[in-house]
Simulated scan of single mutants.
Amino acid sequence: MEAELMALAASGASTLITLMVSDAWAQTKTRLAAVLGRTGDEKETLRELEASRAVLVSALAEADDATVAAVEDEWRARLSQLLLSDSGCVEGLQLLAAAPGDTVHNNITGRVQANLLIQTGRVERSTFHTLPDQTV
């Protein structure tokens, strides 16, 4: 069982690091703080997460792989300790390891206009072309 917990801690730390530098961070950080702060102060955990994120973003900008690995190792150790001391947090960490946001579900309602739907996560530069009117 301990090997499974250590694997979950490693997966959770990797997912946490990925979330910290993704667009999903703003949406997930408070939920993560609730899971990770179960044995202490949730607000303090959120501050620690934000501090780690700041270090991580800076390290990535400087291509400092050692610091990135150190941040991940720190959270892996913390998650391992949390799992060993509080078995009730296993489900929360399994949800963390599942990388929230991997699945998108859309419901489209209302009147259809032009039979066109564009779904995207980010649009930076877009050019739309239309064919010239072909009236004869």
Rank of each mutant, 00 (worst) to 15 (best):
Q81F: 12
E48G: 15
A59T: 03
W75H: 10
D65C: 00
A61R: 05
D64E: 06
S87F: 12
L95I: 14
L96D: 07
V55W: 09
G92P: 08
S85R: 14
R53M: 01
A59V: 02
S80Y: 03
A97Q: 00
A66R: 07
W75P: 08
E62L: 13
L96G: 07
W75A: 06
V71M: 05
V104K: 03
R78I: 09
A97I: 05
S58Y: 09
D65M: 05
V55G: 10
E74P: 07
D64C: 01
E48Q: 15
A99Y: 09
G101F: 03
V55C: 11
R78D: 10
A66Q: 08
P100K: 02
C89R: 15
G92I: 05
V104E: 04
E74R: 11
D102N: 03
A63V: 09
H105D: 09
V57H: 05
A54H: 13
A70E: 12
S80A: 07
L56D: 03
G101Y: 00
S85L: 15
A66W: 03
Q94G: 11
C89N: 14
V90Q: 14
V104F: 01
G101P: 08
W75R: 02
D65G: 08
E50Y: 07
E48K: 14
L93T: 11
A66I: 07
C89F: 10
A97Y: 02
A99W: 08
H105L: 02
R78G: 13
H105G: 05
H105N: 12
A77G: 12
V71F: 04
D73N: 09
E50A: 14
L93I: 02
T67P: 04
G92A: 10
A70P: 05
A63T: 13
L84M: 15
V68D: 00
R76P: 07
L79N: 00
A77N: 15
V71D: 01
L49D: 11
G92L: 12
D65T: 15
C89E: 14
E62R: 13
S58L: 11
E74M: 07
W75K: 05
A98D: 08
A59N: 02
W75G: 10
L49T: 11
A51R: 15
L83A: 09
E91H: 06
T103Y: 05
D73M: 13
S58V: 04
L79C: 10
V55I: 13
L95W: 10
P100E: 06
A61M: 00
P100N: 04
C89S: 15
L49R: 03
T103N: 05
A69W: 01
V71L: 11
D64Y: 06
L83V: 07
H105V: 07
Q81I: 07
L93H: 04
S80F: 01
E72T: 06
P100V: 01
A77S: 14
A69K: 09
S87Y: 14
R76L: 06
D64M: 01
V71W: 03
G88S: 12
S58W: 05
C89Y: 12
A98E: 08
L82Y: 05
A77Y: 06
A66Y: 04
R78Y: 09
L79Q: 03
A77P: 12
Q94M: 04
E62C: 04
L56C: 02
G88T: 12
L56Q: 03
L79M: 13
L79A: 01
A98M: 05
A61V: 00
V57I: 11
L93N: 03
L84G: 14
